[in-house]
Nucleic acid binder design. Structure first.
Length: 752
RNA sequence: AGCGAGGUGGGGUAGUCUGGAUAUCCCGUCGGGCUCAUAACCCGGAGAUCGAUGGUUCAAAUCCAUCCCUCGCUACCA
């Protein structure tokens, strides 16, 4: 039996929205499988993660909803914690059932005061070791007339382009002319969040982490990990290293976060940048776990060190990080650089001394980073974007979590993006999970139920041994070895497929043994046939133990149906092939492990939900810690439920008119846009940019009478000014058609 | 347009880094069997010039070059 120390690190979900199935497939299901598997091997496993709760996007959501940032993160921390629990993830067992020396799990949060304190301690240590440098920058500052104000992140500033004088240019790039510039070069800047406020440029001081000092050590580390890393991890890391590492800002002008723990006026109102802080959660969470749950551990509150430091003999705990692809550089470059920096500081070295890889007593770097690609929710040409807006909490309200765990494992984006869709979900669950595995188990139980048995005993007892079984035993042992190998290499899809093959093997030997014939009327060879059936019971037990990491709920149901005592998640992996284990039996009548799914019913339900789903932003939000996209996507916040009314006057402000499409050309500088010349009834006509490239050929559009908005403010779109907007219908299924006029009417006619 | 990923029988995939013989597995399909089991199970067949072209090599799905196409992110949008 193995008893390594294994730290399972799970990317910290950003507490600015609920988790969706993409997150589950990418970051949350794989580590739970790994955690359960490592425990079953006998290893000492600690699993750490939590809500990432700081940063600008959360303050924006709070501001929009008129609540405090703390209220925002409290809400989503609660929702996500519950959803992960309902999915069967083992976060609720803070202390391992075998005893605290075997580890446990903690789903913490970055607003935890202990996290803050530890981050501040680390920050000071790095600062004292000289691993930060100080720079003065210019940034926009929104002045509050009643005194004070705040610095604005680039993306919350808008202004006039210094190159082409177009208005509406963003902080770092102009859409109209494509120029890029420093944000402070914008003319007449305004704050997006607060357009009326006065905005000025102010100097601000910040600290930068000297990533450049770690270049060599990280290159060495990457070379060392090369054989184990997946290709996406290697590629992404190489790209960063090849560009050359540069100092990176670790402080921000923001008040929602962990305040900079340094003396001096300069640092008032400044926070540790989230990327630098949340990632330390892997470390702080282990500390906090020991503090709160490990009092029984021989090492007490130092218990965490078992999972974090190399021992005197040079043995390291194994560190596995589970995350989505957008987070790779954070975990192969930035976080290792911070760990190396902490070692450097701890060992009393300074910035002038070379950085070295961890030695005995030091914190260790990652063993592997099995990063996933994305599960697409809105991808693919046939995808129904609305229907793919599958949020984890609402999914779990309606379906068996194991069906989701099965499908997402089989469809896991291990090597490239994959797609979630309902027909595929239903088919895989019905045809593979239920038909092969569920049905096999049910056959064994119902057949066994028809054999005579003494009360409280197993019907297979008379058939316990038969020389024909050794072939089957060896075959199943071989298959187990393959599955174990797959799981050790984090190949979850392959591992679960291997288990389904064991179920298939069971079906095969059952088929050739044909015990049903002997049940009707015992014939020659009935003992061998029933012995094979008995072995199928053992295969079912094997499957209960080995599917447990993947399908914990149904594994436990099966465990009970087999008459086995206790929790299958406490049973060791190698127990699955303990062929001498006494037979047991449950006197409860056998019931199927799963219910079949009905596609039409599901589509009808999901369709119904679409109507009430307020989030128009259904594209995949892979908003996990570190991903720069999370903020942008969620800036709109979660729209309130129901419909927002506009009054009649507001509606009448929109002038709709009829125009005729004269000419359609490709936009010179945009993928999705046409430049459309419209006869709008005036002499000059007008030009409209329309994002119809995916839906119409130019020839299809030319000559059509369409409805357009006459008084929409003109706006440059990637270099061409669009004067208005043509109306089109969108069914949300990727089908977009222009609104045309029934019969002839002169151009310029009003539409009411 | 910038960045990233990918094109393998009807669909989905493994194999590609580390070249090697009949290219893997699942679903579907066709034929047969079974009838214990949730329209389930078992056996067998058909079906792929591995996106295109050129190159390196005794040997290319795999290495190199060029091209085509798709997808995601960013930008943008009906």
């Amino acid at each position: 039996m193995s008893d390594e120390y294994v730290l399972v690190c799970v990317a910290w979900p950003y507490a600015n929205g609920p988790l969706h199935l993409g997150h589950v497939a990418g970051c949350y299901l794989p580590p739970d499988i790994q955690f359960r598997f490592e425990r079953a091997l006998g290893n000492r496993v600690l699993m750490v993660s939590g809500s990432d709760e700081h940063g600008t996007p959360i303050t924006v959501t709070a501001e929009q909803q008129g609540i405090s940032p703390q209220a925002v993160v409290d809400t989503f921390h609660a929702i996500n914690t519950k959803a992960l629990h309902d999915l069967g993830c083992m976060w609720s067992s803070n202390v391992d059932s075998r005893g605290v020396e075997y580890g446990g799990a903690l789903f913490n949060r970055t607003s935890d005061p202990d996290h803050k304190a530890l981050v501040q301690t680390n920050f000071q240590a790095l600062e004292q070791a000289g691993l930060f440098e100080r720079k003065t920058m210019e940034q926009y500052f929104e002045v509050d007339p009643s005194g004070g104000g705040r610095f604005l992140p680039d993306r919350y500033v808008e202004g006039t382009c210094p190159a082409c004088d177009e208005s509406g240019a963003r902080g770092d790039q102009c859409d109209a002319c494509g120029a890029t510039y420093e944000a402070v070069e914008l003319k007449s800047p305004i704050s997006k969040m607060n357009p009326d406020a006065k905005v000025e440029i102010r100097e601000t001081e910040h600290l930068f982490y000297r990533l450049d000092l770690f270049q060599e050590a990280l290159e060495q580390h990457a070379a060392d990990r090369h054989p184990y890393w997946k290709s996406n991890v290697r590629a992404m890391t190489k790209q960063w290293l090849d560009m050359g590492l540069r100092p990176r800002a670790v402080t921000r002008d923001l008040d929602w976060g962990i305040s900079v723990p340094l003396e001096g006026e300069t640092w008032n109102g400044k926070c540790v940048y989230v990327w630098f802080e949340a990632v330390q959660g892997y470390f702080t969470c282990a500390n906090i776990w020991a503090e709160r749950f490990a009092s029984e551990h021989p090492d007490g509150t130092d218990a965490w060190k078992r999972w974090w430091t190399m021992d005197e003999e040079g043995r390291s705990p194994r560190h596995l990080y589970f995350l989505g692809k957008d987070n790779i550089p954070f975990h192969t470059i930035i976080w290792p650089a911070i760990i190396l920096g902490l070692n450097h500081a701890k060992n009393g070295r300074t910035a002038d001394e070379p950085v070295v890889l961890p030695g005995p007593g030091d914190y260790v770097l990652e063993t592997n980073v099995p990063a996933m690609e994305y599960l697409m929710l809105a991808g693919g040409q046939f995808s129904k974007s609305r229907k793919h807006a599958v949020w984890l909490p609402s999914f779990l309200e309606r379906y068996d979590p194991d069906t989701l765990r099965y499908y997402l494992t089989m469809n896991m984006p291990e090597n490239h993006d994959t797609d979630f869709n309902w027909p595929d979900f239903v088919e895989k669950v019905n045809a593979e999970l239920i038909a092969a595995y569920g049905n096999f188990v049910h056959r064994v139980l119902t057949l066994g139920d028809r054999l005579p048995r003494e009360a409280g005993k197993s019907p297979f007892e008379p058939y316990a041994s038969d020389e024909t079984l050794s072939v089957h035993q060896r075959r199943v042992e071989e298959m187990l070895e393959e599955v174990t190998g797959s799981l050790k290499a984090h190949r979850f899809k392959e591992a679960l497929r291997g288990l389904m093959n064991v179920a298939q093997y069971g079906n095969q030997i059952l088929q050739s043994a044909a015990p049903w014939k002997h049940l009707k009327e015992p014939q020659d060879g009935h003992e061998e046939s029933f012995a094979t059936l008995g072995f199928c019971w053992r295969i079912a037990r094997f499957l209960s133990i080995t599917t447990q990491p993947f399908l914990p709920m149904s594994a436990q149901r099966l465990w009970q149906a087999l008459g086995q005592a206790g929790q299958v998640e406490h049973v060791l992996w190698e127990e699955s092939v303990a062929w001498e284990t006494p037979f047991t039996w449950s006197d409860a009548p056998p019931t199927p492990l799963f219910d079949r799914l009905d596609l039409e019913e599901i589509l009808a339900t999901e369709e119904g939900l679409v109507e009430h789903d307020p989030s128009e932003d259904t594209s995949a939000v892979h908003g996990v810690k570190g991903g720069k996209k999370s903020g942008g996507k969620n800036m709109k916040g979660e729209a309130p439920e129901g419909i927002e009314y506009v009054d009649f006057d507001t509606f009448m402000k929109v002038n709709l008119r009829v125009g005729k499409i004269i000419k359609v050309e490709d936009h010179p500088n945009a993928d999705k846009l046409y430049v459309v010349r419209l006869d709008d009834g005036t002499e000059n006509g007008r030009t409209i940019c329309a994002g119809l490239k995916a839906y119409y050929a130019p020839s299809e559009m030319e000559g059509k009478l369409v409805v357009f908005v006459e008084n929409l403010a003109p706006r440059p779109l990637r270099g061409v000014t669009s004067e208005g907007m043509m109306l089109a219908a969108d069914d949300g299924d990727g089908n977009v058609r222009l609104i045309t006029v029934d019969g002839d009417v002169s151009t310029g006619s009003t539409v009411r």
